[in-house]
Design a protein around this nucleic acid. Structure first.
Lengths: 228, 228
DNA sequence: CTCCACAAACCGACCGGTTGGTCTAATATC
DNA sequence: GATATTAGACCAACCGGTCGGTTTGTGGAG
């Protein structure tokens, strides 16, 4: 179930048909992701997706068995890349996990990461909408959470070994709370439709993160002040 | 727009018609809230609401102009009461804000407050779904957030004046982050469909909240340990 | 090189079902 | 009889999904 067709051309075939097909497939995935990001999965209209993708029902159902598969493929494709680029890789090669976390958060507040913070985080939107409804979506999204949490916890543990992070805290618990606070803050921003609450929340969040440093590793952020 | 009909019988009229009418109105509100809590606003089916409320379209559209008004009335009615009982009142009459916050959070983790944590917090579900879609819902929900934040910030400020809470933190920022973390944690639980992540996140959250105490006011929670 | 058989890709009318909402008639209570 | 309330058939719009038919590109045969 929930087979995500991959259709990768296998051998290096010069078949132009496959190239064209792959292009519309990508267009569909992209359009689907946009629609879902904007209206949620259930309210995402296939007809609208087709309109922006510039193709028709026939094409869609040639490439995907149903809406569910299309949606899942679009989501997985996009979120995996996002998580890898913005969280997993930076954390894995972090010199100091606290600094790295602060930097990432900073970029979220600045709107450098999410195209429009007020539209919320795609993953969070999906999690909220689908977790109680569709087990395939839920399983995937929960898996992302686990990966995410593990990456942060690992980085914190390394920091503990290197003497950068206090040893009297549970890396697992801290990582979980960091994710929760991050997601919660983005949620607040979305409801407020303005980033001021984000700054407020992150101001306290920065303090918390800095409090995780060992004392001989005095507090600072990637940019000093952010408080109003 | 978005008139929330209130229809409260006004004077003490013995008019049995109004009593009967009020009863179906309440049944509709209750059924609507359940449906919306379960499936979200957009996916909430009027026919299903009518089924559980035990009445028909005619009744519904006699009492409410449209789905929007019904939904909003159901939400406002329910959430206002919830916030008042579980957050605003306890915080207003708190001896020590930190203790009060810890107690409330404890009761969330224990599942004493939300009927089924895995179904999420009704307000959060609504915020996520509707903030980007309907300005009436968004405005109301954001107002609740503001009230909520203000209540926590006020309590923290009082605690600062009483020497229970550190004076070197911004009450506003801390209050905002507390809400974010709380909401974020519930979101994690919903996606994980199990409360373990909740315990993990709250473990770190407790530490953070205790760190807000003044030093001569040593750390403790309403119940001591919760960490695994 | 031309031509053709074949299949992948695409098209869009159409399907049954569901949605929120309307309307008229019937009913209950004064 | 007047009025508030309820009943449920009905509507247009839209939904995801199906299906018969057309286009397009290619590899092999002559």
């Amino acid at each position: 179930m929930t087979q995500v067709p991959k259709t990768i051309p296998a051998e290096k075939s010069e078949d132009a048909r496959q190239i064209r097909g792959e292009r519309t497939r990508q267009a569909l995935l992209e359009a689907a992701f946009d629609e879902i990001h904007q209206h949620g999965y259930r309210a995402a209209s296939l007809n609208d997706i087709l309109k922006t993708a510039g193709c028709t029902k026939g094409s869609l159902y040639h490439h995907f068995p149903d809406k569910h598969a299309l949606g899942l493929a679009a989501i997985v494709d996009n979120i995996d890349r996002f998580m890898e680029a913005n969280w997993l890789t930076p954390l894995a090669k972090a010199d100091n996990p606290i600094d790295t976390l602060l930097t990432i958060l900073q970029r979220h507040v600045n709107g450098e990461i999410l195209s429009d913070v007020r539209r919320g985080c795609p993953m969070q939107n999906l999690s909220q909408e689908m977790s109680g409804l569709d087990e395939d979506f839920r399983t995937y999204l929960n898996g992302v959470h686990v990966e995410w949490r593990t990456a942060i916890a690992d980085a914190l543990r390394t920091g503990q070994e290197n003497g950068q992070v206090r040893k009297d805290i549970s890396a697992e618990a801290a990582a979980t709370m960091i994710i929760a606070t991050h997601q919660g803050t983005i949620g607040l921003i979305k409801t407020a439709q303005c980033t001021e609450v984000g700054n407020l929340s992150f101001e306290a969040f920065y303090q918390y993160l800095n409090s995780l440093r060992t004392t001989d590793n005095s507090t600072r952020g990637p940019k000093e002040g952010l408080a109003s």
